[in-house]
Design a binder for these strands. Structure first.
Lengths: 200, 200, 200, 200
DNA sequence: AATGAATGAGAATTCATTCAT
DNA sequence: TATGAATGAATTCTCATTCAT
């Protein structure tokens, strides 16, 4: 990659990051190209040169966001900590500011461009799936997950928790109950009627 | 209420319903006042006469939506069916088209007017809380819910399920797994190691 | 027509006339909506309320122009003056400023929206045709036009002259030669080899 | 001319031709520098290096177009075919696609830069004039043109025909009438009352 | 000489809101 | 009360032109 290209790539990333930050703060639809331009210290036209139109910029920002999420997740799965620790991190760690942005991207993509959105979700799923399988395998092997449950359902269950706890409000309300909440994760509402080997 | 007022109230409701339908189809931010006016067969100014500005209209539409949700929930709690049936309905019945609108209202309110939003959520919670307590009480009494769990956590847990299954995509993916998913609801990932008295 | 409508129609006409004048002075593509708005003393949005988009405005202005041309032509045909006088007027009178606008409308319509353009030309032709026939009939009856010539060709021939002499440059160059030019109109390049009964 | 210059001249011509083709297809005002650059396989800046600004490019393209027209005309005059044949060719042969581009250049130049435009017209006229005189002389000598007509008027008359028949629409409508139309060219509307020695 | 990157100025268009009746 | 008409402000996007290498 020559000097031109490298600089160019860097600028593209600058723009994406600026737009991501603004999207997080004000929501996607509220942010104008001119604001992004100002924040990224480029002219509006430069943005158009790189992304052609606003939709493309949003799309690429969404991709950027998802790529980050994915690599975070993979890193977590590979970490050398006990299974319940991993789950706790996955469920409780309201990852930085990412709070509500997920839903908004989701909404935006669904409404305007459902095809691309699906494509993205798909590729994301495919990337993530193997690691999810690995995680579930680990859980089953170590006796934390019922072996009779299908991976499909387990995955949805985990994702549900992860998504839910990312909401700002929720994470607030959870603060004093996080232990209990993790326990519910494993034992459901019915609870564990036996000796608690989990030590959550 | 005299004839004037009644007619007036009817018109207000017409407008709210029109805006709600449009919000559901196109998302809140995409819908303009003029579109709402057209759909409700009134002039734009009439909308301003009733609601003063767009924000108020959205706010009232949100209230309208929440009131419906609440009364649905209360009706469900009062129904004379076994506890697990209630839960199933709550969790699996992807209530009509209401699908993603919830999240969008949520996003919108958080971003623009967090104070009012909180007020609304609060009053909503207060209205719903007693019935939730009743529901939880029923569950605990009949042995479906671990008595040691706090109502707070139980409520969040149930809401999490309810919200999650409302997403269009999710309900698609769930179709063949709904039984298993309900089971997870009660037993969590650890699963039930004993005889299954639930008969889900 | 009530007061509202009348005022509204008047405003629409104001806008069309403003845009027509500007088109004539600067050419169609050079004129922006905001300039038209300024000249018509309305806001840009008012123009959009009436015409929806720039193309529609241009289209209606074109229609307005053509309607004027047509009624001018019809008036001329109905005038009570000798045939050669009518021709002279038709050919030589470089009608006010209308100079080059015709061609520009023509170009614009061809390039962007050939369908509508054709429709307009057609309706125009249909309106004008009967009067053209009348004019030609008059010419043939009085011995100014060769009876063997087809109306089609005669019409094109006359139009060709009319169009050509409308060009600013041409009318300049013609000034000292207009008599001769009218003569050519009747006798072509070959000239009249007999006594000149026309008295042009 | 050394290699450098030759290559450079070639590139300049490439650009002019690209712009000419685009102008013909989309109209002058609709074509952007970047499109021309793409079509000519050069960078935008290269165009600026050669032509300084868009106006100059258009101007040179116009010159290029006119030069072609002129040399076509001169070739025609020099051809060894009977006079009426020459006229037919001049009048009826809707030269390739050049159709409406003439008018557009004309409009453009008039509106924006009437001075240069005049200069161009002038030089063009000067170049063409001698050959026009030759053509007219030939016509008069062979009895096809009335000797009393001024060259000025004859020239305008011929140009009028040539221009008119170049329009796409016109040439369509003319198809079945071309013979008759040529006849009108020579005899005007009054027609030839004697034996027809022209054999058109 | 040639070009990828960048931009200021301005274009069409949309929208929430107000005016006047 | 109800509404047709009108608008200021903002938004997306385009384009001729210049910068920097």
């Amino acid at each position: 990659m020559d000097g031109f290209k490298r600089r160019s790539e860097k600028k593209k990333l600058d723009i994406i990051q600026a737009s991501f930050l603004l999207f997080m703060e004000y929501g996607i639809q509220k942010v104008s190209i001119s604001e992004i331009a100002k924040k990224a210290h480029v002219s509006q036209v430069t943005i158009y040169n790189y992304f052609e139109n606003k939709h493309n910029l949003i799309y690429e920002t969404y991709k950027f966001y998802i790529d980050n999420e994915v690599s975070d997740f993979i890193k977590l799965v590979k970490e050398d900590i006990p299974f319940p620790e991993k789950i706790k991190k996955l469920i409780l760690q309201s990852r930085q500011a990412s709070a509500q942005i997920h839903e908004e991207f989701y909404q935006y993509m669904i409404q305007d461009y459902s095809k691309e959105h699906n494509y993205l979700e798909l590729s994301y799923t495919e990337q993530v799936l193997p690691y999810f399988d690995e995680l579930i395998h680990e859980g089953k092997k170590n006796g934390f997950i019922d072996k009779q449950l299908s991976n499909q359902v387990i995955m949805m269950y985990i994702q549900m928790f992860a998504e839910y706890t990312k909401k700002e409000e929720v994470s607030m309300a959870l603060l004093p109950n996080s232990e209990e909440f993790s326990k519910v994760f494993f034992y459901g509402l019915f609870g564990y009627k036996d000796t608690n080997k989990l030590n959550l």
